[in-house]
Design a protein around this nucleic acid. Structure first.
Lengths: 140, 140
DNA sequence: TCTAATTTTGTAATGATTTCAAATCAGTAA
DNA sequence: TTACTGATTTGAAATCATTACAAAATTAGA
């Protein structure tokens, strides 16, 4: 797990520091879609100088380099996922748990037994035509 | 538009007050996926006593009664949509604009000319099996 | 009109995230 | 080893969207 973390970091072009390895390793080991605070509370005991800011900074860095995915399914706080392969998520409005949904496209009845869905949200992010054109003019 | 707002409110079981009508009407008229602040700034001139808190309260009420949809595509703030029919959204990471994507399921090349997609996120929200079972036991 | 319930309002509190400058660390050349 | 440079980490303070709350205003019914 430790080596996998280092491999993932270097493969994504990130210099593997002790903190970055710890956080990457945590996300590879725990498929619970943790928040910053969960990661912090679990790592501080073995890394007492660790700062919350470092976790924020590192997660942003990892996300920008596509080493992890930032989930915005929770309306309050960001959650993070070490699984970068395309898949969807379900969050229970009562207990807050986030569950992986290994299916592209819309859900079928197979899942109706596992949970009751009240909201479906499909979000795309990227760059719009006019911003791409503006960037072209400025950069060339 | 005024009457449509009242109709939507009553159809969703919401008593139509002046403020609620204004906000509902605004969301029916402006398909720009506004934030609380956009709604506030646009409505205050004609409704000087309007409070931001009322907008927060009203939007939550409207959403709970399925009169509108709350969008969480923007990582900073909530946006709101008066169009409750199922559709997806795209947000430009540069200008922040949110664009409707009238397509269920994953995007095809048709959209590649309109924008470049970097992230795809499919979120479901509802209730998980164990929470549903807990609720059953408590309520019966 | 009087009263009770509902709705609205403004202020203060909350809490996640960001900013920022100082401290620490890692790597390199002398 | 030592000194230097740049990268990384850290903690405190600031920011900003949202919520809590209690008072004020409005509405509806008797």
């Amino acid at each position: 797990m430790h080596n996998e973390a280092i491999e993932r970091l270097t493969a994504c072009g990130i210099k593997p520091s002790a903190q970055r390895i710890s956080i990457m390793e945590y996300l590879l080991k725990h498929r619970t879609h943790p928040t910053v605070d969960m990661i912090y509370n679990d790592l501080v005991p073995t890394m007492p100088t660790l700062s919350r800011t470092t976790i924020y900074n590192t997660l942003k860095l990892l996300e920008e380099h596509n080493a992890i995915i930032e989930l915005r399914i929770d309306k309050k706080t960001a959650h993070y996922d070490g699984d970068t392969l395309p898949h969807s998520h379900f969050q229970c409005k009562s207990c807050g748990k986030i569950i992986d949904v290994q299916m592209q496209g819309l859900l079928n009845e197979q899942y109706e037994t596992e949970f009751v869905i009240e909201e479906t949200e499909i979000n795309y992010r990227g760059y719009c035509k006019s911003c791409l054109e503006k960037a072209k003019k400025t950069n060339n």
